[in-house]
């Protein structure tokens, strides 16, 4: 055997310490990978548990009546939560009517008109800070502005609280959407003699529309599930709402109220309401993502 070959053989097989070190390193590597994968898969446990319980506890009561009847009084059985579904829709609608125009117009200003202006930078910072504000603060604000002024809990107060909650989401996603529009489109529009407004209305907004709708749907999904802003602005009601200026039921507050009472039927209904709420929120999220992916 020539000396070089024997030397290299010696290098690979003879030196026990190098070899065992390599084995140890590769073993550590495998163990860490295993730990990482296990920890990651562990997060599936709560989700599976939640979905399983939602279906197991929520499905038995799910029927047509649940959508059309009024909540049962304490200790009674039967009934549904039609008024709560209607209340949630009404308040999310009010929130959307306030926050969507404000958010989208602000996004147009900070992306199309004056992206580097001081106002635009302040708007971005404020929007970031508003996303970080606890949702219950939106409720406190609406309580101070509407409930203390008018002297009554109302759907308007709940709607305002949700509007504050939705505004930053809509604003920031709309800004991202507008940023995604290629500047060549704008330049082409200007080149054809279009004004600023014509460019925005006829070229930029149509192109950004799906992405803006994604943001709006995400905001709707989040607002529909929120309880904290509604709990002391809209309060709750056992009856069908006659106007928007009176205490209004919502799905999320119904879940909260019914989850803490000692009556099995009410608790079962809280699960059914949770199932309906999660289904609605998931649907809104999925539709948000499909709108967006269709564009790409």
């Amino acid at each position: 055997m020539d000396p070089i070959a024997s030397h290299s053989l010696d290098f690979f097989d003879g030196d026990r310490s190098v070899n065992s070190k390599t084995v140890a390193r590769s073993l550590t590597n495998r163990i860490l990978s295993g730990v990482c994968i296990t920890l990651s898969l562990l997060t599936m446990v709560p989700l599976i548990s939640i979905i399983f319980l939602l279906l197991k506890q929520g499905l038995p009561l799910l029927g047509a009546g649940i959508f059309t009847e009024l909540p049962p009084a304490a200790g009674m059985t039967g009934g549904g939560f039609g008024n709560a579904i209607l209340g949630t829709l009404a308040m999310v609608g009010i929130g959307l009517a306030v926050s969507a125009p404000a958010g989208i117009l602000s996004a147009i200003f900070i992306n199309e008109y004056a992206p580097t202006s001081r106002l635009a930078q302040t708007v971005r910072l404020v929007a970031k800070l508003l996303t970080g504000i606890p949702s219950i603060i939106c409720g406190v604000f609406a309580f101070a502005v509407v409930v203390m002024m008018t002297g009554t809990f109302s759907a308007y107060a709940g709607g305002l609280a949700l509007a504050v909650l939705m505004l930053p989401t809509i604003l920031l996603t709309s800004e991202q959407a507008l940023m995604g529009v290629q500047s060549a489109y704008r330049e082409a529009a200007y080149g054809l003699g279009a004004t600023r407004f014509q460019t925005i209305a006829r070229v930029v907004l149509p192109d950004a529309f799906p992405a803006i709708m994604t943001g709006v749907m995400l905001a709707v999904a989040r607002a529909a599930g929120e309880t904290a802003p509604l709990i002391f602005t809209a309060l709750f009601s056992q009856f069908w709402a006659k106007s928007l200026n009176e205490p209004t039921a919502s799905l999320s507050v119904l879940i909260y109220n019914f989850s803490t009472v000692p009556f099995p039927h009410q608790i079962a209904m809280a699960w059914t309401a949770s199932l309906v709420l999660v289904a609605f929120v998931t649907l809104a999220n999925i539709s948000a993502q499909t709108i967006f992916s269709r564009k790409n």
């Binding site: 117009l105 200003f109 106002l119 708007v123 504000i133 504050v164 004004t195």
Partner: peptide
């Protein structure tokens, strides 16, 4: 005057004032 720009600018101002208004009210 670009009315749409003024509209957008007003919306931006309102957004900024919103945070101030929340803190002021509380």
């Amino acid at each position: 005057p670009d009315l749409f720009k003024i509209l957008c600018q007003t919306a931006s101002l309102l957004t900024v004032l919103m945070l101030g208004w929340i803190i002021y009210e509380i």
